[in-house]
Amino acid sequence: MHSPVMKAVVELDPARALRAPGSPNDPELAAILRTERRVPLRTRAGRPVLVSAALAVATGIALVVTSPWSTPTAFATWTRVPSQVSSVVPVGLATECEPMTRWPDDTGQLSVEVPVQPVLTEVRGDYTYVVQAGEGVWSECLATVGTTAGTWDVVQNASLTPEPLDTVLPAADGLLTLHHGTTSWTSGNAGAGALTSAFGRAGADVVAVEVALDDGTTARASVSDGWWAVWAPGELSLTGEATATLQDGSTRTATIETP
């Protein structure tokens, strides 16, 4: 780390002065050691609800697990294959999936606006998922028809990208991941728990993408105009493994990374 800028960044570290040495006699360590080590866990890391519950039991704290991540009826109408794929957003949803993203300026005010436009829309069961892109920014939007006629229940997410979206493109037979992450959706009456989404750019020869799910099955991603997108119920439900099918019928193994 020879760069003066990097050395200067060190001074911004909020934890430089924190002192928290671990001791063999720490009660928190003792509480962990009292727990059963071989509790069956699902294979992926990041199951804090289970972990929290175990820790609470170990320390004698009553805990009712009301995890939003594992609702039994989560996204009951979700389908492994999208029923519709296009770049057109349904009537009424265009304004709900905001066409303008807002970012902080030097003072922290959300005054910098960057427009985004739909690049891919897909439908799985009752759920419409929209990916939008703009100058160095993307957004995603998951919606279902609201309980009142003409309304939508919507959750959205947006991020700036280090490089303009068009400057980094995959090879003709490859995939580029712009986003891969989990969220919960509990807004409105249709709230159904955790979902994992991913999208990015697809090479010119890619006509289909099949992604592996953590239950051992697969789901078909949407591919349209050089973009691909997929989402599935559950936390960390996309394993990151994918297979791209090319125009000539051949396949390529691909990895959905976490940017």
Binding site: E11, L12, P14, R16, P48, W185
Partner: peptide
């Protein structure tokens, strides 16, 4: 592992939240 735990705790109802890095409040 800590990053996964933090990311899960940072999620909230109906919203995505990016992992945010704080900065020191006071000059060092």
């Amino acid at each position: 592992v800590a990053r996964n735990v933090i990311a899960t705790r940072s999620r909230s109802e109906g919203r995505w939240r990016a992992l945010r890095l704080r900065i020191a409040r006071q000059p060092v």
